[in-house]
Amino acid sequence: MCAALMTGSRSDMSTNKRALVTGLTGFTGRYVADELAVAGFEVYGIGERLSALPRYTQVDLSDREALHAVVANVNPHVVLHLAGIAFVAADSAEAFYRVNTVGTRNLLEALANEAPNVECVLLASSANVYGNATEGMLDESALPNPANDYAVSKLAMEYMARLWFDRLPIVIARPFNYTGVGQSDVFLLPKIVGHFRQGAKQIELGNLDVFRDFSDVRAVVNAYRRLVQICPAGETINVCSGQSHSLREVLEMVGKIAGYDIEVKVNPAFVRANEVRSLLGSAERLRSIIGAWDSPPLNETLAWMYHLPSQ
């Protein structure tokens, strides 16, 4: 990890504080839980899956009564809302709005009514709200232009959350793409790394000339933890590396790590008409709030993923 990630106290306000993490059993949730625990938080979680994790409750975001009961029982000091449908190519558009937008509203309602000690609520939105940006570095002043239902559901969540700003200390994070050990191979980078780890000779992909700003999941959750400790309520903040890479470049990086080149077959079925061609973000606002922060170079993250087994 970059030394800059560890800048700042991990326990200046977190000892004996309760953190509620939605989507705790998901890819990001597991890293968030570890980050918060090291910082001294007592971590509670909710999610739609069964789990034997301590202080975890299975609850659906559409179940308002159950949400109110869980929130009242935990009485959290900070909340990190990660739960949602994150795979852009998911089939059901209705599910995006039901979970990402309405589910978030249900959570905020429960927090406003049942969490009198809450000091910060971080909502994970998405840089996909910026849409098909083709050039330039996007800061938070860029006008949203969502290009798919996933992005629209996240932007709708942001607007809906503003209705609660007078009742809850809400921070909206807009993470750009990020990856790491344990991410599902329905996402492109784990798919690419997985093929190389298996020694595959060929891989089927879509458009190779899409550019993304990729961060390391460990850096992202570090930023989340520091944001909830500082709590710049009412702010919308990019979480991004400030560097973009095409999938062609990713293939070259992993090829060097694995020691061979893979044949790429472009499958038209994987080429989406509403593909966001380029996303590159500015993390200046984030750094102005939390201080020194950075994400490891992408080739280091890919090497971590290649050399370690999936979690």
Rank of each mutant, 00 (worst) to 15 (best):
D209N: 13
E284K: 15
F214S: 01
N274E: 13
N207V: 08
F27P: 03
V217W: 00
L205I: 08
L24T: 06
V99M: 05
H81W: 06
A147Q: 14
E158V: 04
L251H: 04
L298Q: 07
M6C: 13
V264R: 12
D185C: 03
S11C: 13
P175M: 02
A39W: 01
F41H: 10
E284R: 15
V59I: 13
F214E: 00
T7M: 14
N132L: 04
P309R: 03
R287I: 11
N132Y: 01
V70R: 11
A95N: 11
R105Y: 07
Y224T: 11
T236C: 10
Y31P: 00
V271N: 14
N100L: 05
G242T: 06
D139K: 06
Y56I: 11
K256H: 12
Q183S: 01
P144D: 04
W164R: 07
A72S: 15
S310P: 07
T179N: 02
V74Y: 03
C231I: 04
S282L: 12
V70S: 12
S288V: 10
A110P: 09
V239F: 00
P190H: 00
S282M: 13
V254W: 00
P116D: 01
A200H: 13
R248M: 03
R212G: 01
R212S: 00
V266L: 14
D261P: 12
A39V: 04
G29M: 02
F96L: 09
D294P: 10
K201D: 12
S278N: 15
G40L: 03
V210I: 14
F211P: 06
G45K: 03
V250R: 03
E300K: 13
Y97H: 12
Y150G: 10
N274P: 14
F87R: 10
L107E: 03
I46Q: 01
I172N: 06
A269R: 15
F196R: 06
V121Y: 00
Y224M: 15
M13N: 15
D34H: 08
A4C: 14
N148F: 02
N145G: 14
D34S: 13
V38P: 03
D149I: 04
G8Q: 11
A37Q: 11
K265D: 10
S153A: 09
L155G: 08
T25I: 04
V250W: 00
L208G: 06
R225P: 12
L208I: 07
A33R: 12
G291D: 12
G84C: 08
D261I: 07
R10C: 15
G194W: 00
V99K: 06
E263Y: 07
D149L: 07
R162T: 11
S11P: 10
D213I: 02
I172Q: 04
S14I: 08
T57Y: 05
V266F: 08
S51T: 03
V239K: 01
G23Y: 01
P232W: 02
R18W: 01
A147N: 11
L205K: 10
A93M: 12
S241E: 01
Y31I: 00
H68M: 14
L247Q: 06
T15H: 14
E252C: 05
M253C: 09
E119P: 05
L189T: 02
A3F: 11
E109R: 13
D209R: 13
V32H: 02
S310G: 12
Y260R: 15
V220R: 09
S241T: 02
R197K: 15
L82S: 09
G136K: 09
H245Y: 08
G26D: 05
P144L: 05
